[in-house]
Simulated assay, not measured.
Amino acid sequence: MAPQDERAKELLLEAKRLVGQLKAFEALAPAQEALGIFRELNDQVGIAQALRPMLIAQLARGEVKPDEALTKVKEEAAKVKRTARDGRRAEAAMQVTLAAVQLAKAEPVKAVLAAADAEAYFQREEDYPALADVLLEVVAPAHLQRGDGQKAMDAANLVLDVAQKVKDPEVEARAWGLVAAGRFAASAEDATEAARKALDLFRKLGSRVGEAQMLIELARGQLARQDALAALASAREALKVAREAGSWAQAGKASEAIVEAQLQAGQPQAAHEEAEEQLKWISEVTPDHSSKKGLASAMSAVVVATAVFKGGDAGLEVVKSYAGRPERHHGMFNIVHRY
């Protein structure tokens, strides 16, 4: 393998790893560099593969809109030469990228349809890493977005089989996470067991981000089952892990789960105090793309908690008071209007 080609593949792996660890906003630089090298090498497959984390990163950073990303994918797809030696594989990789963008647009049905041919191709060619990729990144999440827990579980269970073939523990951990999410969505009795399996695997990998995400998923599942106390414990642990990992977006999501658990437990005053405390804390974190997402979640929690505790539009007024202080909210005034 030529040094340049090897460098591009390393960068691509790094970009995909960051996306898989919920750090898409950090994946832009390696994805763009990989894409540039693949273009120089005229590597159709590499271009299609690098385009995906690059667009996902740009979407996460708010640098492109979903429709703009979709147009970009279609432009690149039109350049693929199917008659070339790697043409069919490049086409399949581009289909996965298209599906990923459609999923980002909250169009899960279109995403599943766009990924279907690629999924069948990778299965037929026994390209297991690529098959795991499309199932983990598009198919299972799309079914979850549709609320179809059973189909999400089917896709995740297939990934578990693939994980045995590629011998990738991170793929296995992520697959178990999707199995758990699917089981929770389908109200399956063994959902908690699957979540704890995924949690254990992420801990063995030393993935603090994966651990925090699974604790958040566990809390959400427990909330769906009206187990407020268990959900509160899971969410608090998720918040602790997310803070230690510096994953502010996850810290915000954990804060939302904490507040929801307290409200479900009939503790509106405690939920209100918790929400304000977490908003104050995260508003003082050094601004980056992750902390901005965390701040949005914390603001959302304040809106809900204050509205329940004080009624009316009081929650929105609290958030507006934060939005009025630029040094405290990282220029996030527009977030208020989303809620």
Rank of each mutant, 00 (worst) to 15 (best):
A120E: 14
P53F: 02
A194Y: 13
D67V: 09
E170A: 04
Q44Y: 00
E274P: 07
E26S: 01
A114R: 02
L135D: 02
V162G: 06
V159Q: 04
V45L: 09
V139P: 06
A186I: 09
G46H: 05
A180W: 10
D43G: 10
A60V: 08
A156E: 07
A77G: 03
A118S: 09
M214Y: 09
L59M: 05
A212N: 15
K72N: 04
A270V: 13
A118D: 08
S297G: 07
K167W: 08
V73P: 14
G177H: 05
M332Y: 06
E40N: 03
V308F: 10
E273N: 13
V171W: 09
G46K: 04
Q58V: 09
A27T: 08
E244M: 01
L135I: 03
A230I: 00
V139A: 00
V162C: 05
W281G: 09
R328T: 04
A48W: 00
A233F: 00
D200F: 15
Q267T: 08
R52A: 02
V73A: 10
Q95A: 12
M54P: 11
L223Q: 15
E317R: 11
Q95I: 06
R220E: 05
M332T: 14
L215C: 03
Q145M: 12
K105D: 08
L158Y: 08
Q102H: 02
G312W: 12
L229T: 15
L12C: 13
V19T: 10
E68V: 14
R146P: 06
R7E: 13
A270F: 04
A180M: 11
R208Y: 07
K240A: 08
A118Y: 03
K293M: 03
E26M: 01
P108H: 00
A181N: 08
V138P: 13
I282H: 05
G294T: 14
A305C: 08
V285T: 12
M214A: 05
A60I: 10
G221Y: 05
K65R: 11
E137M: 07
E40L: 06
R61A: 07
A60H: 07
A230Q: 04
Q21L: 05
A57W: 09
R225I: 12
K16H: 13
Y322G: 12
F333P: 12
Y128N: 08
D154A: 13
G266Y: 00
Q95C: 04
M1E: 15
A111R: 00
F122Q: 06
L263A: 06
D313R: 01
E211G: 02
H330K: 13
E107W: 02
E170Y: 06
D127C: 03
K320R: 15
P268I: 10
H272R: 15
E10Q: 14
I47A: 02
D67C: 01
Q262W: 07
F202T: 12
A301G: 11
I335M: 00
I56L: 15
R208H: 11
I258K: 05
Q164L: 14
R243A: 03
R7W: 03
A188S: 11
V134T: 12
A114N: 06
A257F: 01
Q226P: 04
K204I: 11
E211I: 02
A298I: 01
Q213K: 13
A224H: 01
G331T: 09
L135H: 01
K16A: 13
A271D: 07
R52T: 05
R7A: 09
E170V: 10
E172I: 05
I258Y: 04
V241L: 15
K72I: 08
L35V: 00
I216V: 12
A50R: 02
D200A: 15
D227S: 12
L316K: 12
V138A: 03
P30T: 06
